[in-house]
Design a protein around this nucleic acid. Structure first.
Length: 840
DNA sequence: GCAAGGTC
């Protein structure tokens, strides 16, 4: 039996489809899908891994962990290099009695262990135990092995890890490597007819990346977390990619903070080509506005002079009319980065975009979403793809027109790789088939695909110079004269601004001018889409990881909001590392690693040499960092306090801070003077941030609360503030009391301690009838009663619109609803159209 | 309780 190992299940299936003469048989080995088929009488099996199946970590016996914690480095085994820098603290093992914890002899403990952790041995531990079991089970029966993971460095490493698992149970079967860069019949057959050897040097290059990332990441993350320990779950991370990314955001914020806004003045005139002299009502089709030819006046005196010059003037002369046509090229095919950038502009975060794209791909609506390539391969039939998506009525006329033109030609991007095609739609979908967010992304991808087959748009720009008593004004207008791709791709465009027709020398009405004082703006913060593009430019992360790196920065509270804004903590971490361990802060570390990996792959240097050099460098930087721990501690403490600060305590004047309850992890506001001062305020569920603005009603501090899947709200922290009062409204009659022959009203109220809104029976001393309510949104009684349980129906005005619901959680209608929801979501996905893929 | 890289 020949065993073929691929990087993912999808690839295993495709390869089986392309190589098998007859349709492969889908089977399972311990829950892992495999595909069996025959080639020339020989039995073949393909199995897909799930990316990396092994993961490097410090050798468990060398690093003493308790409860998964970071306790110390054990004394057994030599993990210390010949000489540690002199400036490092002396570890406790110098004591006469060996330093022990739970009977384990330790070389060093917590912070003091870090210099040793730098040199702690690393081994590969199983990560995907189920897959490994399946792989080994098949490997035992295999006569030969083909490693057919992706054709790149990580693919070589994944294949090499798989091989080490295989060879534990079958060391004799011959091994070869298939290299392919597209799932076409020709390419796959060519790869399997021309098998090569696994490139151990390339795999070693990847493994060096893994080790270096682990060592730097673990050592610096532990340093930052332990230097000012803030309780479990309060990790302050650092890494080769995330820290330079954070530094980009911090640098932009520093520019903004250093920015000195300057005043300037702008003058806009009101004109009307419908008359030769004003004033006119300014409402007719000839009315338009135009700024002065000098866009910004640096001083008020200059602006005042112009205002005086045009004051009382009734008419302007058209000094010139210039028309220029310019073409706007059709966009190039989507790769991961450009998709995330475009979706980011439409309000989908990169992380969400990738989640949705992954599911659209799995359901057969789009092609593989993790690509760098921006050139459609020749093997992709553009015509077939257009036909495939024309099932959506919104695209159908445009698709028909494209097809009527004969052979289609697509635009080409700058990046051309052959691993996967750029992202394109593989089947038709309509808004009925997908959830709104899924369709939003699908629609973007489908329209982008059609746009790449379209002609350029032609825009006619008109520039009209107007003379108002010697002062010159300039009106500009853009009109789309040939829509080209814009007919199908309306994303990221300015609205047309057309001007009335005018001729040189013509007099038009002047209805006066307004002068406005403005200020220059600091450079804008990064949007997530822009940041991803910047990361790509600097070589930080990969197409598959960049979005998760940004999410990580949010998770550890280094950044907040979108566009991205660093927290005080984020800035403090960045500053401390820049000062004492600058290497981790700069993207050059990645660039250097890349060139060293090239050297490992070329065989000119060993993995050991590269990792040891990196360890020595980290050791030096750590030696700089450790003696300054008090300084770093103070800086982080100040930053954390600043991020938590919400305002002064009304009782004692000390700081009110956002805090997390020790027991429940839930957030509340407490006074820094605790236990002397017991002032606390409850907080609703969700992510909470302090905001500088005070409540306009009562003057107390406010917080921004972002509940799960809803828009942020700014709330006053005082539950007794009028803005937090919930009118106690009667929503209906208590069904339980009614059944007992009594009459009692059900009342909606808010608990001032927990801020939870609920419905209860007014006769609550005897009747415990109560229902929960959504926390937000104006509440309305309907007078209607739920058919299934008799509870009153209410309407909650959410930010997605009014929502009529039965508040009873135990109502039988809930189950029906849940069932309807899941089938509504799944049904259209159940019969995904077959991927057109690259079949010629 | 660490990173970043695959993939689900």
């Amino acid at each position: 039996m020949k065993l073929v190992v691929t990087e993912k299940n999808d690839a295993a299936q495709k390869i089986a489809d392309l190589l098998g003469v007859k349709k492969p048989k889908a089977d399972k080995v311990y829950n892992t899908p495999v595909y069996r088929f025959e080639v020339d009488g020989e039995e073949w099996v393909t199995i897909g891994l799930r990316g990396h199946i092994l993961e490097p970590d410090f050798t468990p016996s060398m690093v003493y962990k308790k409860r998964g914690g970071w306790r110390g480095v054990t004394a057994d085994g030599e993990v210390v290099p010949a000489s540690l820098p002199d400036s490092l603290p002396k570890p406790p093992f110098k004591k006469k009695k060996p330093f022990t914890e739970d009977g384990v002899e330790l070389k060093a403990w917590k912070m003091d262990a870090l210099p040793y952790l730098v040199y702690a041995p690393i081994e590969k531990l199983p990560k995907e135990k189920d897959i490994i079991r399946s792989l080994k089970n098949l490997a035992k029966k295999a006569d030969s092995i083909v490693i057919a993971t992706d054709f790149d460095r990580e693919g070589e490493l994944i294949g090499s890890d798989a091989l080490s698992c295989i060879q534990e149970v079958n060391a004799t079967a011959p091994v070869s490597r298939a290299r392919y860069s597209a799932f076409t019949k020709e390419e796959i057959h060519h790869a399997f007819d021309n098998l090569v050897e696994l490139d151990g040097a390339l795999a070693a290059a990847g493994a060096s990346r893994q080790d270096i990332d682990l060592i730097w990441g673990a050592v610096l993350t532990r340093y930052l977390t332990l230097v000012k320990f803030a309780g479990y779950g309060n990790v302050r991370s650092s890494g080769r990619v995330q820290t330079p990314t954070l530094a980009l955001i911090v640098a932009r914020e520093r520019e903004r903070l250093a920015f000195k806004p300057e005043d300037y003045w702008v003058i806009r005139g009101a004109f009307d080509a419908g008359a030769a002299a004003g004033p006119t009502d300014g409402q007719g089709p000839g009315a338009f506005e135009a700024p002065t030819a000098t866009a910004r006046f640096k001083s008020q005196a200059e602006a005042d002079a112009i205002m005086a010059q045009v004051s009382g003037v009734k008419s302007a002369i058209v000094a010139s009319v210039e028309k220029k046509k310019r073409t706007v090229a059709a966009p190039v095919p989507f790769n991961t980065t450009s998709l995330m950038a475009a979706a980011s502009a439409e309000g989908l975060t990169p992380a969400r975009t990738m989640r949705i794209a992954e599911s659209l791909y799995m359901d057969g609506y789009i092609s593989y979403p993790r690509v760098d390539n921006t050139v459609y391969p020749a093997s992709l039939s553009l015509e077939d793809t257009v036909r495939a998506i024309s099932g959506n009525p919104a695209y159908a006329p445009y698709c028909a027109e494209l097809l009527s033109r004969g052979k289609l030609v697509a635009t080409r991007g700058k990046k051309e790789t052959t691993d996967h095609p750029p992202i394109y739609p593989t089947a038709a979908a309509t808004p009925d088939d997908l959830s709104p967010a899924d369709y939003k992304l699908y629609n973007l991808i489908a329209r982008r695909f059609l746009a790449t087959l379209s002609e350029a748009a032609v825009v006619e720009g008109t520039k009209v110079s107007l003379d108002v008593a010697g002062a010159s004004f300039v009106a500009k207008g853009d009109v789309l004269v040939k829509p080209g791709f814009r007919a199908i791709y309306p994303y990221g465009l300015k609205k047309d601004e057309s001007l009335p027709a005018m001729e040189q020398g013509q007099a038009v009405a002047f209805n006066g001018a307004t002068c406005t004082k403005k200020q220059t703006e600091p450079p804008a913060r990064y949007s997530q889409g822009r940041l991803i593009q910047e990361m790509e430019k600097l070589g930080l992360g990969t197409k598959s990881t960049r979005h998760s790196i940004i999410e990580r920065l949010y998770q550890v509270k280094y950044v907040q909001n979108d566009p991205l804004e660093p927290s005080q903590l984020g800035m403090a971490v960045c500053d401390a590392l820049e000062k004492f361990a600058p290497h981790i802060v700069h993207p050059e570390m990645t660039a250097e690693l890349e060139s060293e990996m090239d050297a490992i792959a070329a065989g000119s240097i060993s993995k050991d040499q590269v990792v040891t050099t990196s360890r020595n460098l980290l050791s030096e930087q750590l030696a700089d960092l450790m003696p300054h721990s008090e300084e770093v501690n103070a800086a982080l403490a100040d930053a954390v306090a600043a991020d938590a600060y919400v305002g002064p305590c009304p009782k004692c004047g000390k700081d009110l801070q956002l805090r997390a309850s020790q027991k429940t992890r839930s957030m509340f506001i407490g006074c820094a003077g605790w236990p002397d001062c017991d002032v606390t305020y409850p907080l609703p569920q969700g992510r909470v941030e302090a905001v500088p603005e005070k409540c306009s009603t009562c003057g107390m501090p406010q917080v921004k609360v972002t509940a799960f899947r809803s828009k942020p709200r700014t709330l006053c922290i005082d539950p007794n503030c009028p803005t937090n009062q919930e009118p106690s409204i009667v929503v209906g009659e208590c069904p339980v009391c009614k059944a007992n022959g009594k009459h009692a009203s059900l009342i909606a109220q808010k608990n001032p301690r927990t801020l939870k809104r609920f419905i209860r029976c007014e006769n609550y001393e005897e009747c415990d009838t109560g229902y929960p309510l959504p926390q937000y949104g104006a509440l309305e009684a309907t007078g209607e009663v739920c058919e299934d349980c008799g509870a009153p129906l209410v309407i909650v005005h959410t930010n997605r619109g009014p929502w009529k619901l039965c508040p009873n959680f135990d109502c039988p209608s809930k189950e029906k609803e849940a069932a309807a929801k899941s089938s509504a979501k799944k049904k259209p996905r159940k019969a995904p159209a077959r991927k057109k893929a690259a079949a010629k």
